Amino acid sequence: MTQVAELPASAAEARDHVHALMATCPRPCGEDALTDALLIISELVTNAERHGGGMTGFRARVTEDHFDVTVEDASPAHPTLPGERPAGSVGGYGWHLVRRLATSVAVTPTARGKSIHVGLRLR
Score class of each variant (00 low, 15 high):
residue 76 P to T: 10
residue 22 M to D: 04
residue 100 R to K: 14
residue 70 T to Y: 04
residue 43 E to M: 09
residue 21 L to W: 03
residue 43 E to Q: 06
residue 96 H to W: 08
residue 82 P to M: 01
residue 77 A to Y: 13
residue 17 H to N: 08
residue 13 E to A: 14
residue 54 G to L: 07
residue 29 C to D: 06
residue 10 S to F: 14
residue 60 A to H: 05
residue 57 G to F: 04
residue 99 R to K: 12
residue 21 L to P: 11
residue 24 T to Q: 14
residue 107 V to E: 10
residue 31 E to D: 11
residue 19 H to E: 12
residue 103 T to L: 02
residue 117 H to S: 10
residue 74 A to T: 09
residue 77 A to S: 12
residue 87 A to H: 09
residue 90 V to W: 11
residue 119 G to A: 09
residue 34 L to Y: 03
residue 48 A to Y: 11
residue 62 V to W: 00
residue 20 A to W: 08
residue 20 A to T: 14
residue 73 D to F: 15
residue 40 I to S: 05
residue 68 D to N: 11
residue 7 L to C: 07
residue 71 V to H: 05
residue 69 V to W: 01
residue 1 M to H: 10
residue 12 A to G: 13
residue 63 T to Q: 10
residue 121 R to D: 15
residue 56 T to F: 09
residue 21 L to V: 04
residue 41 I to T: 15
residue 28 P to S: 08
residue 49 E to G: 12
residue 112 R to N: 06
residue 103 T to P: 10
residue 56 T to Y: 06
residue 118 V to F: 07
residue 3 Q to N: 01
residue 6 E to K: 14
residue 67 F to T: 00
residue 62 V to Y: 01
residue 58 F to A: 00
residue 84 E to P: 08
residue 40 I to Y: 00
residue 33 A to H: 07
residue 74 A to F: 08
residue 30 G to S: 12
